[in-house]
Design a protein around this nucleic acid. Structure first.
Length: 480
DNA sequence: TGAAATGTTGGGGCG
DNA sequence: ACGCCCCAACATTTC
């Protein structure tokens, strides 16, 4: 009588190249696949609104994928340990397998579960699957975690290549008569009224098929021009794989090897692919920072920033969230985020710089907003990236690097396509004034149908004054 | 994966 | 022809 095993899905919603699942199905024992919806476990970092929408569709997709393999996905909600206890009682399983996760709350959950299962005679086995290189496997010569990206990534690239992606064993034995599953709809992960995600199905295809499609499309149509195209938000030159990666619908190893195979041969292509893969490197870097410095989501990495004189006024926050700051590029980005659950990376840097260095609002407020609105909200990436922009992070942008939103617009959205798309009330302005409508002569504004302060806001802050204020604020904590 | 201030250079207009 | 000034254009420094 072979006891069954349980595969516990988490942020690894795929079946291909998933070592833990492969181990479960290779054990020669019947496998119960389950996903446990346990929002209380994550504390402040339960999935936000946009992520919940994605999760719903990703679970649907995973359910179909497993059904195609002859199994079924058992959905349960509640306290993870309680639910697991029920599933074990119902199946008589003696082993639970899962992919390792790196969020502090998730690590704590794994450890608690490990103990409680252990005392019940059940083994919890944890497998890699989320990263290219396990945190801890890449250390400096002094056995310290890297705090600077470039040497970190150089050290990673000097390691043996991550293993080739692998599929599942030929013979998959799933547990028949699996315990009953919740209905996904009952979890109410998708918005009802208002349905702010209406139409998102046309923009995104959550799940492994969608992820693989994005990767193929990226490699065949975009990668060749990546290093240049990636900076221009109007041009669709990025992979848009981030939400797929966050939910584990595609493994970074598959991306790594597929991209490298694509870049082989031509030197130019190889360089572009390297540039793309270094973005995976930033993801690895952020994860290892989160593992070694688990306070990163809520406390500045650089000590002196705990005394930074952030503004106590929050009135600019609302204008920023709603895309009503009066700076066209900033507003375009914030509206793209709100309307699609996504924002181009170049613009993320600009809006983040604007929040922290023009409005002087704490990066935590931006982190929270992104957490709720981004489909790809990911604790490690989100926290480290906000700290990077704010200047408080490891290997962060220097404090004096304050983006000029007008200059950024003119440099990276020269033809104004991005602004015109997301800020249509300015669409009729000529290129010359599109990124700074307040400088436009009255007749130009009039013929474009723009009335500043009515059809489009006046700038919430003056760039030059805000810059000066921020520099002197940073001067206060300098040297501390 | 900046921007602004400051410094330097060189061509052209002009007395 | 010459020096002077102006000011792009580019380089360097500073925040």
């Amino acid at each position: 009588m072979k006891k069954p095993v349980i595969y516990w899905f988490r942020q690894d919603l795929r079946t291909y190249d998933l070592p833990g699942l492969a181990a479960a199905l290779g054990s020669g024992r019947p496998v119960l696949a389950c996903y446990i919806h346990d929002e209380s476990a994550a504390g402040d970092w339960a999935p936000g609104g946009a992520s919940r929408w994605w999760l719903h569709h990703s679970l649907e997709s995973l359910g179909r994928e497993i059904a195609d393999l002859g199994g079924s996905l058992c959905l349960r909600s509640g306290d993870t340990a309680d639910v697991m206890e029920q599933l074990i009682a119902a199946t008589d399983a003696d082993t639970v397998l899962c992919s390792r996760q790196y969020e502090p709350w998730a690590v704590e959950l794994e450890n608690r579960l490990h103990e409680s299962l252990d005392s019940a005679g059940v083994t919890l086995k944890r497998y890699p699957g989320t990263l290219l290189f396990e945190p801890g496997s890449v250390k400096t010569q002094a056995d310290q975690p890297y705090k600077v990206f470039t040497p970190f990534w150089r050290a990673c690239r000097a390691l043996p290549q991550p293993p080739q992606p692998r599929g599942l064993p030929d013979e998959c034995q799933w547990l028949q008569e699996a315990p009953p599953s919740d209905a996904l709809e009952d979890w109410a992960l998708t918005p009802q009224q208002p349905d702010w995600a209406a139409g998102w199905e046309n923009l995104w295809q959550p799940g492994s098929d969608g992820a693989r499609r994005r990767l193929q499309e990226f490699l065949s149509e975009k990668a060749g021009n990546y290093s240049e195209g990636r900076d221009h938000p109007a041009c669709d030159s990025t992979s848009r794989l981030s939400p797929h990666l966050h939910f584990g619908e595609i493994s970074p190893r598959e991306i790594w090897h597929t991209a490298q195979a694509h870049g082989a041969g031509s030197g130019a292509n190889a360089r572009e692919v390297d540039k793309f893969l270094s973005e995976l490197g930033w993801r690895e870097f952020s994860y290892q920072l989160l593992v070694h410095f688990p306070d990163i989501p809520h406390a500045p990495f650089k000590q002196q920033f705990s005394h930074f004189p952030w503004s106590v006024k929050q009135q600019g926050l609302r204008a920023w969230q709603q895309g009503q700051t009066g700076y066209p590029v900033v507003d375009a980005g914030m509206r793209e985020l709100w309307q699609t659950g996504y924002m181009h990376n170049r613009v993320r840097m600009v809006v983040a710089s604007f929040l922290t260095k023009h409005l002087l609002i704490h990066w935590r407020a931006g982190e929270d907003w992104f957490w709720d609105t981004l489909l790809d909200a990911d604790l490690a990436n989100n926290a480290c990236s906000w700290q990077w922009v704010a200047g408080s992070g490891a290997d962060a942008a220097p404090y004096f690097r304050i983006f000029n939103p007008v200059a950024q617009g003119e440099k990276f959205d020269r033809d104004g396509d991005y602004v015109r798309r997301w800020v249509p009330e300015l669409a009729a302005l000529p290129d010359k004034y599109l990124h700074h409508p307040w400088d436009a002569p009255a007749d130009v504004l009039e013929s474009a149908g723009v009335v500043l302060g009515q059809t489009y806001p006046e700038p919430v802050v003056d760039h030059r004054a805000a810059r000066e204020a921020t520099l002197s604020a940073y001067a206060q904590i300098k040297g501390e």
